[in-house]
């Protein structure tokens, strides 16, 4: 299994990855609390970006409503914990199940009726907005007044119930992100991964090669939505409060996709690099603005917008592809003409 995963991966890429992982594992030893929370945020976006990337980057279906799956994951696990005392690790499979069911419904409706491209994107937004308004009136999860998880001052880390200090959350999200990375790597090299890319590149040509495009698009949305749900569980137990207005807000969905787009859609490293750059830069900007007393609510997001604009205009394929060529990690060549 492991040999198969590693087969064909260049040695210097493995060394690079091992180095990066070692730094990330050791980081809490050197980093202060603030830096750890920034790293948590980075890894959180790397994870959700990776999950979104399966649907858009691999299979070519643009979702602008991934906050829906985060939100469903968050609300499911939080409600189970608050109402029945069921811990997050048992809540997680339930959350995944609900998220997958919802993703499958959206996928079935869209792909069965040939809804693609921008129409699909708008359908995903519509579902997310629909859910947001629905949850505003959903009393079991406290509606618009917000669902809160009990918080105390923790002296020790309780991994079973995900109650504790930032360092514990850091290792949890690091493990999730590493798992997501390995899984995406495996998917990309599997038959499913090849078929997704074929659909992304040219759906009619893919069908002419015997690929049931409906089936593989369904697989993509099911895996992507299922993978997004644990991020929601993490979100709920890390932040301890959930409001429909925030959780299902359209900008939440946009935040998820910014990382992979800036890093490189459809690449394995894109979501990771994008998350590092975007979150790192925006935190630095926040610091700067606060230091100069210019901290207004919209400033950070204007920065997001400008980043996105510049990258989309200057590097339409993201930052990773040129770096990959530089590091000789690109298996595809463009012949000189």
């Amino acid at each position: 299994m492991i040999a198969r995963l590693l087969h064909g991966v260049p040695r210097h890429a493995l060394l690079l990855l091992a180095g990066l992982l070692a730094i990330l594992v050791a980081a809490p030893i050197f980093a202060d609390d603030y830096l750890v929370t920034v790293l948590i945020l980075i890894l959180y976006f790397a994870y959700t970006g990776q999950a979104w990337n399966i649907l858009m980057g691999f299979a070519g279906q643009l979702s602008l409503g991934h906050a829906l799956f985060v939100g469903l994951g968050a609300y499911t696990s939080a409600a189970l914990y608050v109402h029945f005392g069921i811990g997050p690790w048992i809540g997680m499979p339930v959350a995944i199940l609900i998220s997958v069911a919802c993703g499958a419904i959206i996928g079935f409706l869209a792909f069965r009726f040939g809804v693609g491209g921008v129409y699909f994107a708008i359908l995903t937004i519509a579902f997310c907005e629909f859910t947001r308004i629905g949850f505003d009136h959903f009393d079991w999860v406290a509606g618009s007044s917000g669902l809160f998880l009990p918080v105390a001052n923790y002296t020790r880390n309780d991994l079973i119930n995900l109650r504790g200090q930032p360092v514990m959350f850091y290792y949890v999200i690091l493990a999730l992100t590493v798992a997501a990375f390995v899984m995406c790597h495996a998917l990309l090299r599997s038959r499913v991964g090849y078929y997704w890319q074929a659909i992304r590149e040219d759906e009619a040509a893919a069908r002419s090669l015997g690929i049931s495009t409906f089936r593989y698009k369904m697989i993509a949305i099911v895996i992507s939505s299922g993978m997004t749900a644990p991020a929601g569980v993490f979100y709920a137990f890390y932040y301890n409060n959930l409001f429909p207005e925030q959780t299902f807000f359209i900008l939440r969905s946009i935040e998820i996709i910014l990382g992979p787009i800036i890093g490189g859609v459809g690449t394995l490293f894109g979501p990771v690099i994008g998350a590092f750059l975007l979150t790192g830069l925006s935190e630095a900007l926040q610091e700067l603005l606060t230091a100069y007393g210019l901290d207004t609510p919209g400033a950070k997001r204007v920065f997001y917008g400008v980043c996105l604009l510049v990258v989309v205009m200057v590097l339409p394929n993201g930052i990773w592809p040129p770096i990959a060529r530089l590091l000789r990690l690109d298996r595809r060549e463009t012949p000189e003409t």
């Binding site: 038959r191 090849y194 078929y195 890319q197 074929a198 992304r200 590149e201 040219d202 009619a204 040509a205 893919a206 090669l209 015997g210 690929i211 459809g266 298996r331 595809r332 060549e333």
Partner: peptide
């Protein structure tokens, strides 16, 4: 209509996956 963003061998591999999973 080849898959433009994929390499030549990947294009053909996608075809071959039909009989060779």
């Amino acid at each position: 209509r080849p898959f433009p963003g994929l390499s030549v061998e990947e294009n053909v591999t996608i075809g071959a996956l039909l009989r060779q999973p």
